[in-house]
Design a protein around this nucleic acid. Structure first.
Lengths: 159, 159
DNA sequence: ATCCCGTATGGGATGCTATGGGATAGCATG
DNA sequence: CATGCTATCCCATAGCATCCCATACGGGAT
């Protein structure tokens, strides 16, 4: 479970520390790195561990091999996906392409989103967050209509 | 797993470096080169290791020997298939025919597609990618509808 | 307050990747 | 046989990625 938001600096070599909490979560999954791809819908990157990527891949593999939509997803996810291993200090260095997509400069804001996390330019994120909160406030009534989900394979919190 | 995209230069002798990540993946398969054939559907080349080629061949062999479609596949894939060994620096040099099919000039963009990869002229690929992303974005809901499969024998990511 | 430890950050040193070009060997052609 | 072409091999190099070590900072415990 990725949660919380952290903003870390990008150094002169382009390295950035992945928040320790996220690294711990990835370590549980047996991963010494992240996978990362540009979001379809927003000016940010999405990242996670191998589990996230396997899920995406499985979803793609269930589609008809000749469906042009499958091609579209393959290109948009697999082709734009990058794997980054942590250096000995838990940092990664993104590629130019990804940096460009998210308009990242000297800081990256890591935002936990449950099974994945996002990486934003700080000011872009603040803007996004403001709009999201506003929308949520206007529609808060809808939240109550949803019944709580019985229980899924939810992680236990006592370790 | 071939993923990510890399664009490398074609030098004056026609050589191009295969991305190191792809070479590593091929090396696991025990291959010191690639198999390459023109895509039927797009203006690009498709490549992979011997395993990919075996799969293609099996698929064709399962077809009825008198099915005209079998002939078509055989001619389109097997006949135009070519094997390239890496030189000591991990480069290959394509044949004129293949270069022509993909309209390659001074750069080649290698695009990971899971079990295989593609080789494109950069501007052709950008165009293709743009359209694919657009299609994927419009239909992103479809991807989410597929349930993730519980879990498979997944490769570990710490080496 | 002081100590201790983990996290984030910075920078030198080193190794690897992509790239370029000279040299050599094979092959075809006149 | 001489000549040109091509495919290799081999070496050199620039740029980048990664390792390793040092430092700064903050929180918790003593």
């Amino acid at each position: 479970m990725f949660m919380g938001t952290f903003t870390n600096k990008v150094d002169s070599k382009g390295r950035v520390s992945v928040p320790a909490e996220f690294r711990a979560r990835l370590d549980e999954e047996g991963s010494a790195g992240i996978i990362c791809y540009p979001s379809f819908t927003d000016q940010c990157l999405e990242g996670g561990g191998p589990r996230l990527f396997d899920n995406l891949q499985d979803m793609i593999e269930q589609m008809d091999p000749y469906d042009p939509l499958r091609d579209a997803f393959e290109v948009s996810i697999i082709a734009d996906c990058q794997r980054f291993l942590f250096d000995t200090e838990g940092r990664i260095t993104l590629t130019q392409k990804l940096v460009k997509h998210a308009d990242i400069d000297d800081c990256i804001t890591f935002v936990g989103r449950g099974d994945k996390f996002q990486m934003w330019n700080l000011t872009c994120y603040e803007d996004y967050r403001y709009k999201a909160r506003q929308l949520a406030r206007e529609n808060r009534g809808l939240l109550l209509r949803h019944r709580p989900i019985p229980k899924r394979d939810r992680e236990e919190w006592n370790e």
